[in-house]
Amino acid sequence: MEYVIHLSIVSGIVAILGMSLNLIVGYTGLLSVAHAAFYGIGAYVTAILLAGFGVNFFLALLLGMALAAAVALLIGLVLSRFDDDYYVLASLGLNIIIYSVFLNWNTLTRGPLGIPGISRPELGIGGYRFGLTSNFSFLVLTLLCAVLVYLAARFITRSSFGRVLMAIREDEQALQVFGYRTVYYKLAIFVIGAVMAAVAGALFASYITFIDPTSFMLRESIFMLSVIILGGLANTNGAVAGAVILVVLPELLRFVGLPSNIAAQMRLLLYGLALVLLMIYRPQGLFGKYRL
């Protein structure tokens, strides 16, 4: 049962990442592979504030979201100058730059050693304090966040703002002719996506209670991309489905009895293979409404 709860929590976190990245990649057509950077910012802010200063989880979460928004605004401004392949390349570079900051800013992030001893969230109402120390209560929190992100994503994609985003994806120039300042729209959705990723990062840090830079490498961005491409671009339900499939499927390898180092490589192999096969046979993914 603990195991099922664990998988559900991880799926929930990945689903938040998938849904947020889908807003950027699927709905707006901006192929960003920098999402792990914002995931990492959320995780690091939470970790540093919780482990170092004993700040309340929810305050740390808000601060993490704010920092992710600020960084995303800067990165989004840089990225707004690029299209297609160059966008991918630049976002890839920015992911690696942020990763090197996590890795090398030793005084703040403890570099490759990582930050241990991150506490679980605590709710304080009046004099009564309630810690979300059991995995089940943490699952409730994760699902709550995932549902909020899901509703936000649905609200965004069904609003007029969302329709502009999809129009940007289909024909940005035509939209500019109609007088839309597409740059602002792209920047806005990029920041919104980054803020949601920071929520996932905060949950991850607090759940695992230990983080180090390797969780926020380019590899993770590629993993998130496979989640949404598998589930289907421009489909929020698809992103959730992709997250569950790609979290649960590699776990089956455990039951086959592969040694853990082989199993870890097998996971990567699966993600990569999923990308290649999908591109060849079904570029819109399982439930996609948009193909690259």
Binding site: D85, I229, L273, L275, V276, M279, P283, L292
Partner: peptide, 18 residues
């Protein structure tokens, strides 16, 4: 080009893992 790029990214991951 984006499809080709993602397929290539997948291949990179697969080959390194293999």
């Amino acid at each position: 080009n984006l499809v080709l790029l993602i397929a290539a990214l997948g291949l990179l991951t697969v080959i390194q893992a293999l």
